[in-house]
Design a protein around this nucleic acid. Structure first.
Lengths: 157, 157
DNA sequence: TTTTTGGTTCTGTAAATTATGAACTAACGA
DNA sequence: TCGTTAGTTCATAATTTACAGAACCAAAAA
């Protein structure tokens, strides 16, 4: 399989993005190739050879991504190969994870306020504002998402 | 300076959180101590000794955080020490960075759609939905923030 | 003028991460 | 039953990171 220069470039770019999200370089490239390749499904061999990563690294990356629910595969009768593709639900998950992450931060910050004893309440106030903002966001987002879904389905139907 | 067990625990927890955001362990702990200590401002020495990190690591961490705008310091006449504190604007920045990050992802995904040529449009559709969702979010968030600010100021005044 | 304070800068290195290649295995095909 | 395919597992090599320690420096104090 061959990829255009633009596709190779995007794999790297997406790869770096996902490295910053905590994925190993090779794992991030595997996600990248599944995302940008013209074929929506690729075999172990195609991934390994096109990305120039060893079989072991490919094996580890694919199993890791399978375990974390980022990819899945189908098979075809009379063909021992597995055909891997990105799980599309993964996009929504990516967003949800970011939101959960802010929730975690918010929990930590709430406990910070309980634990530290500052003489000047001005310092607590700034933090309280941010906490309240995150709470507000959390309360409003579901409605926002719902509304988007409504508008989007309207267009589609 | 001494910290309670709960404070030490929170420094570690916040530290791990910030490690996941790409900060070095020691840097993340420095942010942590500035966040949870009873005193809102701490000196180089207090930070270094309380966290048990070397002067060099402390120096690097503080300069890194100063350069990236996460902390700032004040001085007092006749006192050569600098008193470091977390920049409170940093909370809003943290949130903004998460949003910018989703914007970056969105840009990459838009280019993916331009570059890959898939026979079955179903695959593109899923991606298009997510892109459109992120765009929607981007368009709605400023209003959401504005509304929160309005409500919050109302309470305060 | 010498010493102390409040740091900074420069190696060196322990530990962790990430990937490789080779040996291995299970299933199928000839 | 022998070879081939489609991978997995293991030992280890190559980087990368993250920090400590020591030497260093400028300003203030003694």
């Amino acid at each position: 399989m061959t990829l255009s220069d633009k596709q190779l470039e995007l794999i790297e770019e997406f790869g770096v993005y996902q490295e910053n999200n905590g994925f190993q370089p090779a794992v991030a490239r595997v996600m990248g190739i599944l995302l940008v390749s013209d074929k929506p499904e690729l075999t172990f061999e195609e991934i390994s050879e096109t990305l120039n990563i060893s079989k072991s690294a490919t094996s580890n990356a694919l199993n890791m991504l399978l375990n974390t629910g980022h990819i899945e595969y189908t098979t075809f009768p009379g063909d021992r190969k597995r055909y891997f593709r990105i799980k599309s639900s993964n996009w929504r998950d990516t967003f949800n994870k970011k939101m959960e992450d802010l929730g975690e931060l918010n929990n930590i910050l709430k406990r910070v306020l309980e634990v530290r004893k500052r003489d000047n309440p001005v310092y607590d106030e700034k933090l309280l504002y941010f906490i309240s903002f995150l709470d507000y966001l959390k309360s409003q987002l579901p409605g926002l998402i719902e509304q988007w879904e409504k508008e989007n389905l309207k267009e589609k139907v």
